[in-house]
């Protein structure tokens, strides 16, 4: 129980939390704005990394690899969107079908291998765990090469773009689609097209975060997306449960999701520091997310018992 071990682990927790926070922003778009639980992200969370690392290894520049990863994710979102709208499959199933199919696609991208490593020193990665601690005190890394800084800048740019988009005519119609599809159609909004657009944006962001994650760990693993939706949801529900009262502005709500991701990972690091059996870690994660998801439901249920009783008829003391 060495406290310095914990302190040493924290920057890693923050960096990973930020990367998963970006992924959480993707989940926020479907889960909170469109009111769809999109499970394709479990596949997209591998896809982005697979595309990015494979392209980097083949010598393509960083910007093109990241862009391709994002576009690949958007195509996965398009697939889910078509399954859901054009083919009428319930959203959850549509996501699972995409996720299932992506398994083969991801393996093909990885050249039939279950994982692929990349040399962080050789390929000058945007994010890698080695950037968090300076190994050579005489030659410290400049702050702008620190993963936490790089990922935070990416996150802010993404939040900025989303803030702009959801303020446009199209973005506003997307929010209406998630909030009230009947009203949206009555106002001439094609809700199906909007759902597809939302799924594409969401999966694009998730694939981007996947590409960052693969660079951070300097490898892609065919299993790195397993349960990604749970971690993404954790970032969303922790972010909204803790910050919803303070953050009213849309951009700040997204910052809340980012913070939710960081809090989640730091808590996980602390749990690991207590030498909890790592096999049980997923069980703790599942329970943590379940409890946070229950918070709004409980809040509603409890207010029923604590609310002031209303007199029937509405006229108190009418007889006197």
């Amino acid at each position: 129980m060495d406290i310095t071990a914990l302190l040493n682990a924290l920057p890693g927790g923050v960096a990973q939390g930020l990367i998963w926070g970006i992924m959480g922003i993707g989940v926020y778009i479907t889960y909170k704005i469109l009111d769809i639980a999109d499970l394709s992200v479990d596949g997209t969370m591998v896809l982005g990394g697979a595309v990015c690392i494979t392209m980097l290894l083949k010598g393509y520049p960083m910007w093109l690899s990241m862009l391709s990863a994002t576009v690949a994710g958007m195509l996965a979102g398009l697939a889910t969107g078509i399954f859901h709208t054009f083919m009428g499959i319930p959203a959850i199933l549509a996501g699972i079908i995409t996720q299932f199919g992506l398994w083969s696609i991801n393996l093909k991208i990885l050249d039939d291998k279950a994982n692929l490593a990349i040399n962080a020193q050789k390929y000058n990665l945007m994010a890698h765990s080695g950037s968090l601690r300076t190994t050579d005190p005489a030659n410290p890394l400049p702050f702008y090469e620190n993963t936490i800084f790089v990922v935070a800048v990416c996150a802010i740019v993404i939040i900025g773009i989303l803030y702009w988009f959801f303020g446009t005519e199209r973005g506003a119609s997307l929010r209406a689609t998630g909030c009230n599809p009947n009203m949206s159609r009555a106002q001439g909004i094609n809700t199906n097209v909007n759902k597809v657009i939302g799924l594409m944006i969401s999966n694009g962001i998730v694939a981007f975060s996947s590409a960052l994650l693969s660079q951070y760990t300097a490898s892609v693993d065919i299993n790195q997306g397993r349960g990604a939706i749970v971690i993404g949801l954790a970032a969303v529900v922790i972010g909204t449960a803790l910050f919803d009262k303070i953050f009213k502005n849309f951009a700040l709500k997204l910052v809340g999701v980012l913070l939710g991701g960081i809090i989640y990972y730091v808590v996980m690091r602390i749990i690991l520091w207590f030498r909890v059996d790592t096999t049980l870690l997923k069980l703790f994660q599942a329970l943590l997310v379940a409890i946070f998801l229950a918070v709004p439901y409980w809040k509603k249920g409890l207010s029923k018992y604590f609310a002031k009783p209303v007199k029937k008829g509405g006229q108190p003391d009418a007889k006197s």
Partner: peptide
């Protein structure tokens, strides 16, 4: 749309029948 503002709801209605642009 309950989660959107009064002004935003009106703005949605003002664009009925129009292409929703950026």
């Amino acid at each position: 749309a309950a989660t959107m503002g009064i002004d935003e709801n009106l703005a949605l209605a003002a664009r009925r029948g129009k292409f929703r642009s950026l």
